[in-house]
């Protein structure tokens, strides 16, 4: 292989790993929208909390990275119960815009609370896999990045299985397609809300715990996460998990290629350019389900 081909493959690999992070973030966002029709602006903050909880679990409790990450994911997933209880469930009969504002309020609360409690100084989650390099021929990935991709893919498979095969998953799908019909079939809508938020927050936190060691973390990192999540969700279609998968990987690869062959500045812009094109061409996203009016 000549050097140009190697570079191209390497960039695509970099992009797929970043894309898998976007997928993990966007899946929770799309799940909450698809099942509950809620646009959750606070979603990125659960990514931030996942990263910070991992950091503090390993620093204060002396846990190893993997245990700390699992603990953080579980803790943030449980916070999903609280968030739903106070910020979403009580407003379920209100106008969508009220819910939107509520999620915005929650986002500000968590960011500012995070700055107050965690401090503005950047932090680093140390992971034994962060700098370990795995060479695949001339191509290189760190162990951490392989971990991100592997765990991300595994989680999506598990989620797919959960939603397709388990009774709870079927109840979520039923609620997504017709909430009133679901209630009249015996679906406990409140439990569906709770489980959906637990899954979404857990996935976001897991992404935070996984990506943490590849960069620095700071309390405003959630706004980055939610922005990437929304780009993917618009690309793949709100409410579609397959769309989030394809949209996330696509965005990752496109950003890597644009960053690698044009410039990083363009890579940021390309996400928004994609959104505009997709919205003009297919307003429901590439894989989106059109929403019923009202």
């Amino acid at each position: 292989m000549d050097i140009e081909t190697i570079l191209l493959i390497q960039q695509i690999m970099n992009g797929l790993v970043n894309g898998m992070t976007y997928v993990l973030i966007a899946t929770g966002l799309t799940l909450v929208f698809g099942v509950l029709h809620i646009i959750n602006f606070a979603h990125g903050e659960f990514y931030m909390l996942g990263a910070f909880f991992t950091f503090f679990a390993s620093k204060l409790l002396g846990l190893d990275y993997v245990t700390a990450g699992i603990l953080a994911t579980v803790a943030v997933a449980s916070l999903g119960i609280v968030a739903n209880r106070f910020f979403f469930w009580p407003l379920r009969r209100e106008h969508e815009f009220t819910l939107l504002l509520s999620s915005l309020g929650l986002a500000l609360l968590l960011t500012n609370g995070g700055e107050l409690i965690f401090g503005a100084d950047p932090k680093y989650i140390s992971s034994p896999f962060a700098d370990g390099i795995v060479a695949m021929g001339p191509m290189i990935l760190t162990q951490q990045r392989i971990l991100i991709f592997g765990v991300g893919a595994l989680m999506l498979l598990l989620l797919y299985f959960f939603i397709q095969k388990t009774t709870m998953g079927k109840m979520m799908r039923a609620t997504a397609q017709d909430a009133e019909g679901a209630a009249l079939t015996g679906v406990d809508i409140r439990r569906v809300y709770t489980v959906t938020f637990v899954l979404a927050c857990g996935l976001a936190a897991l992404a935070g715990a996984l990506v943490g060691p590849t960069a620095m973390i700071y309390p405003t990192v959630g706004s980055w996460a939610v922005l990437k999540g929304f780009i993917v969700v618009v690309l793949g279609g709100l409410g579609s998990i397959v769309g989030a998968l394809i949209g996330g990987l696509t965005l990752g690869v496109v950003e890597a290629l644009v960053g690698g062959y044009i410039s990083l500045g363009f890579a940021q812009a390309v996400g928004f350019a994609i959104i505009i094109v997709v919205l003009l061409w297919r307003p429901n996203g590439l894989f989106g389900v059109a929403r019923r009016a009202g």
């Binding site: 970099n14 980055w224 950003e255 890597a256 690698g260 410039s263 990083l264 890579a267 940021q268």
Partner: peptide
Amino acid sequence: NKDDADFMTVLT
């Protein structure tokens, strides 16, 4: 850029 968080592509 001042808001970039990942530099793998350019460093590659």
